[in-house]
Design a protein around this nucleic acid. Structure first.
Length: 439
DNA sequence: TCTGGGGTCCTAGGACCC
DNA sequence: TCTGGGGTCCTAGGACCC
């Protein structure tokens, strides 16, 4: 355990909403809600003006609208958030090499590596106060709440104590006195399910948790969680600040405003998502062996199915084909509200394709040359179309020709037909935009 | 028409191997 | 014709975080 308050936690206040208010002066001082604006959207961030009306993160947008009808409801501009986040993280990294981002708006900073003359409370307090000012400068007006303590846990608790735009330093030695009267929910990892289990055992506060034996805690919540809780209840936390963490999975999912029932549509959407996952893998030079689909049914029950390949892939066609095969085993007759595709078991290399079956091969299906009429662009693996044989998806495009593969449950590798891209027999089915495309 | 999206970690059971 | 244990990998589900 550290004996000095050398761990800092920094949290940008109402981050998404604050960026919107910064960039659009007419929103300043007004309630702003950023999140999903569709029928099944939820609130990502509410400005403090909206919180006054009871709007909270993770609340359905529908409920937020009824609580605060006059708020501005925005779907979010993630490039602007990323830019502001990058400015803050760069600033933090200029101050200490040990910066651990938790999300776009939060990070831990290890002040043991910040080159301060000492780590006394007065010194780190003055340092953090100055840093908060610089965060506001580099973000052109955003504010941050900062906590300092002898561990990650204490620093995080501290940053929550004086929001927004606050600074709290928990003096070494005072941690347990601070925590004991607090609810067990201040402990990271204690969510609704654990809170309920503890409540049934008569445990509500950290002091009450501290009185429970390790064996009893393990019995209540399991081995890993129990031992973690036992330590945190005593303010024992020696988790280091870790700068670089390797990604372990990449995924894309979407919730649709109305439940899906058409399997061909679901396959088209999975294919499109697989394309996005593969593109992100390639962008980072990664590939993965395990492909997982996620399906949320109309009644919110959530299923997953996964399949592990013999070697890692970053191929859109391979991910898509595997995802569609996994969907085939599921009964979706009641309707599907969410579909997702993920790849895990990541490696930073790609297996040479030993069998010569590459994505390029699949995309270079025979196509008929016709005069070019550039009406729109068709994306292989992304666009779902209707044509005379029913619904299919675009397998290849170029030179004014669109190749469509018609697959059915009975014939997974169904017939392929080529059309001029402005052929009236061909009509696009355009899936709803994904959140990040709504910028 | 309650309940997002992108992640991490843990658990438990079965297969398989030594 | 009885009975192992440990380790690793894989799958499915769940809790949690921001």
């Amino acid at each position: 355990m550290r004996t000095q308050a050398s761990v800092m936690h920094l949290d940008l206040d109402a981050f998404f909403a604050a960026v919107e208010q910064r960039d659009k002066p007419s929103l300043r001082g007004k309630p702003v809600v950023v999140g999903g604006v569709g029928g099944r959207g939820v609130v990502a961030t509410a400005s403090y003006e909206a919180r006054v009306h009871g709007v909270r993160s993770a609340m359905s947008t529908r409920e937020a609208r009824s609580r605060c009808p006059h708020a501005a409801f925005l779907s979010g501009r993630f490039h602007a958030y990323r830019e502001a986040s990058h400015a803050v993280m760069s600033l933090l990294r200029s101050v200490s090499p040990l910066v651990e981002p938790l999300s776009l708006d939060e990070a831990f900073v290890d002040l043991q590596r910040a080159g301060l003359p000492d780590l006394e409370v007065a010194t780190v307090t003055a340092f953090a106060e100055e840093l908060r000012g610089r965060v506001t400068e580099v973000t052109r007006g955003l504010t941050a709440s900062v906590g300092l303590g002898t561990s990650k846990f204490i620093a995080k608790v501290a940053s929550d104590l004086d929001k927004p735009d606050g600074l709290v330093v928990v003096a070494p030695g005072t941690e347990q006195a601070l925590l004991r009267p607090m609810s067990v929910t201040v402990i990271p990892g204690v969510g609704p399910a654990t809170t309920e289990r503890l409540r049934r055992a008569g445990i509500h506060t950290v002091a009450e948790l501290e009185a429970v034996s390790l064996d009893e805690l393990v019995r209540l919540v399991g081995r890993a969680h129990g031992t973690g809780l036992w330590s945190l209840a005593r303010a024992q936390d020696d988790r280091p600040v870790v700068a670089e963490r390797e990604a372990k999975s990449v995924s894309v999912e979407g919730t649709y405003d109305t439940d899906l029932t058409d399997r061909r549509l679901m396959e088209g959407l999975l294919t499109r998502q697989a394309g996005e996952v593969a593109a992100r893998l390639r962008k980072h030079g990664m590939s993965g062996r395990t492909i997982t689909i996620k399906v949320r049914l109309h009644d919110f029950t959530t299923l997953s199915r996964s399949s592990t390949l013999v070697s890692p892939t970053d191929s859109a066609a391979t991910v898509a084909r595997t995802a569609r095969a996994l969907l085939a085993d599921l009964d979706t007759s009641g309707g599907v509200r969410l579909l997702g595709v993920g790849v895990s078991g990541l490696a930073d290399w790609v297996q040479e394709d030993l069998f010569g079956e590459t994505e390029e091969d699949e995309e270079e299906l025979p196509a008929v040359e016709v005069p070019h009429h550039s009406r729109r662009t068709w994306s292989p693996g992304m666009d779902v179309v209707h044509a005379e044989m029913g619904r299919g998806w675009v397998w290849g495009s170029g030179r004014g020709v669109v190749t469509v593969r018609f697959e059915t449950a009975e014939t997974p590798a169904g017939p392929v037909r080529s059309y001029a891209e402005d052929d009236p027999a061909l009509t696009a089915w355009v899936p709803p935009p994904l959140p990040d495309e709504q910028d």
